[in-house]
Structure formats: C-alpha cells, structure tokens
C-alpha cells in the first residue's frame, strides 16, 4: 500500500467522523443532505459484499466494516434520532436521475457479467455522483456551515488522493482499473468548484455562502 492510498483512506474516514461529530454535538443535521448519505450507504453496501466472499487483510476488513457502520449511523441520525432537524424541503434532488442511469451503465459497462462484479461497478459509478444531492442542497440554500465544508473538503481530498494512488500503481505495478479511474476523475471534477470556494473563503475564516 502506498502513501497516497493510506492518506486517501484516512481522509475518507476523517470526513465521515467529522460529519458524525457535527451531527452529534449540535444534535442537528441541518444543511446535510440525507439523500447523499443514503446513497453512500448504498455505495458501501453494494461494494463491500465481498466481506462475505474474500479475505484480503485485517486492515481491509476492519476499514470496510467501519465505513459501513459510519454510513448507517449517519443515516439513522438523519432520518431517525434527529429527523426533526432535517431540512427535507431543500433536500429535493431527484434520486431517480442518478439511480436509473447508474444502474443501466453498471449492467452495460463492467468487467464481467456476474452479480458481485455488477454490484461493485454499480457502487463505483454511484459513488462518483452520490455527493450531488449535497452540492445541490448547498447551491439551493446558498450557504453551508463551516464544519460541513470541512466534511466536503476531506471527502474531495480522498478522491484526489485515490487518483494519485492509481497513478502510482500504474507506474509501479502497471495496474489500473479503467472503471475506477474514469469514475474517480469524474467525481474529483465535481469537487473542483467547491475546493476553490473552500480555499478562497473558508480557509480565510469566512462562511461559505454563494452570491
């Protein structure tokens, strides 16, 4: 495992912990898209079914388990424990616009036509667009709490570090997975606009608000 990969995983974990701590401390999930969090729970569930079929390493098993737990706890806090604080009105992205094309594409473009491979491919495609309901919500309300922007920053950083990981692996092992790389590039592009706002506003101590 290379440095980009491990830092990518740490960023990913940190993003999920930041979100959980934000919701838990403030006892509120205001400004958080429940739909994006449900999509991430679906992403992990469909990708980590190999927990039952293959063993890679203790690290791999533990991290997959932790990611699944974080995703499900977040969804529970939003739609269960703190549902009264959930901004349903502004979380209005139409999920079928993502789920239908992603499902179709995972049947058409995969490495092999087996249930586990199709589900893995589905999870990769879905992850690349899962943040869109959250970004849509921010553009609709025109603002985001600073802690929410930290969450998005670490999530975006994870994607960027995974790109570096794939470049590294291609150079050293001649390994690459086209589906993962293309999806990874797509999702990193979604964060570019946000990264710009994060650096120019949030890091200078201002709240992220759109004109």
């Amino acid at each position: 495992m290379n440095i980009f990969r491990i830092l990518g995983d740490v960023s990913h974990l940190l993003a999920m912990i930041i979100l959980l701590v934000k919701i838990w401390r403030s006892k509120s999930c205001a400004g958080i898209s429940g739909k994006s969090q449900v999509l991430f729970a679906i992403v992990f569930t469909s990708r980590y079914l190999d927990l039952f079929t293959n063993f890679f390493s203790i690290y791999n098993t533990v991290m997959k388990f932790v990611f699944l737990m974080c995703a499900y706890i977040t969804v529970y806090l939003i739609y269960g424990k703190f549902r009264k604080t959930f901004d349903n009105e502004n979380d209005s992205f139409r999920l079928e616009f993502l789920l239908i094309p992603v499902t179709g594409l995972s049947f058409l473009e995969n490495q092999s036509f087996t249930p586990l491979e199709i589900l893995w491919t589905f999870s990769i495609y879905l992850e690349s667009v899962a943040i869109l309901p959250q970004l849509f919500m921010i553009s609709k309300t025109g603002e985001a709490e600073t802690i929410t922007t930290h969450y998005l920053f670490f999530l975006g950083l994870y994607h960027a570090l995974y790109l570096a990981n794939w470049i590294w692996r291609y150079q050293t092992e001649n390994y690459y997975d086209q589906i993962a790389v293309v999806s990874g590039v797509v999702q990193t592009i979604f964060y570019c606009d946000f990264f710009y706002l994060y650096v120019t506003k949030v890091l200078k101590g201002k709240k992220l608000s759109l004109p």
Partner: peptide
Amino acid sequence: SPKESKHDEL
C-alpha cells in the same frame, strides 16, 4: 490479479 486487486481498495 487486477480483479482481486481492485477489491483490496476501499
């Protein structure tokens, strides 16, 4: 193999 390798990533 590459097919195994990608499942090792998270």
